[in-house]
Amino acid sequence: MQANSDGDKTEATSPMSLSSQPIPLTLELLVSVDLPKTGDDEKEPLLTGLDFLPDGRLVAVDNYNRRCIILNERLQRLGTPYKFKYNPICVVCVSHDKLCVTGGAGSIVCKVVCLLSVSTHNTITLTREITTSSSFSSICCMSPSNMVASTYDDPRPARMISVDGVESDFDHSQTFSMKTYKIDESSCTYVQSKNTLVLTDRYAHTVYMNDTVKGTSKAVTDETIQEPRAACVGPGDSVLVCSENKNSIVHLTIDGKILGTYPVDMKFPRSICVSKDGTRLAVSNGPFGIRKLHLYKISMAIS
C-alpha cells in the first residue's frame, strides 16, 4: 500500500488505466502463493517471465522446470503446462491467444524464440520455433508484429525481432549504453507511445531510458534502485522496475522521475508484469529465499 505524508495508508479510488498521465499509485495485495516443489516438479519453480493474456489469465515460464503455465485470478494452475526442451527465460503475450518465449540459458544452451498458442481451455501448443543469431533474455511488444528483446553475450544490449523471426537493430543504437551483458545482468521493456526503450543495468544500479526516434539516452539512478531486474510498462506510460536488493518495486516516468516505491513481501523480486487494462500487477522473486508469486490490484493514490 502507498502511504501518505502522515503515514496513513491511502484507499483505492479508480483504476490507473483511466489516467493518461503517470501518477503515484496504490498496490493492494490480492493473492500471495508460495512456490514450493510439487510432485511433478524436478526442482523448486523459478518464474523468470510473467505476462497477462488480455482476458486476465496469467502466463508464467518456470525456468528450472522448463515449463509454461497458465494461472487464474487466484493464481491456481489451469490446464497442463507446456514442457520445453530448454530452459525458458521470458514470455510476452503478442495477441489474444499468442505467446512468444525466449530461451536457451541453462544446461542446454541454444538461441531460440518459440511462438505458442493458448486456447480458451488452457491448452498450450507450439506453433513455431525460431532460431536466432543473438541470445535473447527478456522480451516485450513493440508493435503487433514486432518485439524488443534484451540480449546477453552480445554488444547490442537490445534488438528487435518480428513474429516472422526477422532480427534487426535500432537506428540510433550508437547513442545507447552499448555494454555487453552476461545472462541476468540486464532486462528491457518498451513504452510504445513514447518510442522509449527501457534497459536495466543490474550491477550499475541504473535504468536507461532510450528515445529510439531522437536517439537520446537518459541514465536514471536513485537510492531506491538497487540491482534493478525486470521492468514493465505501467499505467499512464510509466515504468515499473523490480529493485532486487531493496525488496521493492520502483515506479518512475520515462523522464526519470521517481513516482513511488512499493515494498513487496518477498526477497529479491525479479519478474513483473501489468495486465492489459492496467488494473493488476504480478511479481515473482529469484532463486534465494522462499519463492513467491504475488498478485496486486492497481489503483490511483489519493493526493
Rank of each mutant, 00 (worst) to 15 (best):
D6P: 11
D8Y: 15
A12L: 07
A12C: 14
S19P: 08
P22H: 03
P24G: 02
L25E: 10
E28D: 11
L29T: 07
L35Y: 00
L35V: 00
G49Y: 01
G49R: 03
G49M: 00
G49Q: 02
L50F: 00
P54I: 09
G56E: 03
R57A: 04
V61D: 01
D62R: 03
N63W: 09
Y64H: 10
L71N: 04
N72S: 05
E73I: 05
R74F: 09
Q76F: 08
V91A: 00
C93K: 09
L99I: 08
V112G: 05
S117E: 04
I124V: 08
I124S: 06
T127A: 11
I130W: 06
T132M: 12
S134R: 15
I139C: 12
S143Q: 11
S143V: 11
D153A: 12
P157S: 00
R159C: 12
S168A: 04
F170K: 00
S177K: 07
T180C: 07
K182P: 03
I183T: 09
D184L: 12
S186R: 01
S186Y: 02
Y190W: 08
Q192H: 09
K194P: 07
T212D: 07
G215S: 02
T221R: 15
D222L: 13
D222Q: 10
A230V: 07
C232T: 14
V233C: 07
V233K: 05
G236N: 02
D237K: 10
E244D: 13
V250Q: 03
K257S: 10
M266R: 01
M266F: 04
S271E: 04
C273G: 04
K276F: 14
G278A: 04
F288A: 08
G289N: 01
K292Y: 00
S299N: 08
M300H: 14
A301L: 09
I302G: 08
S303N: 15
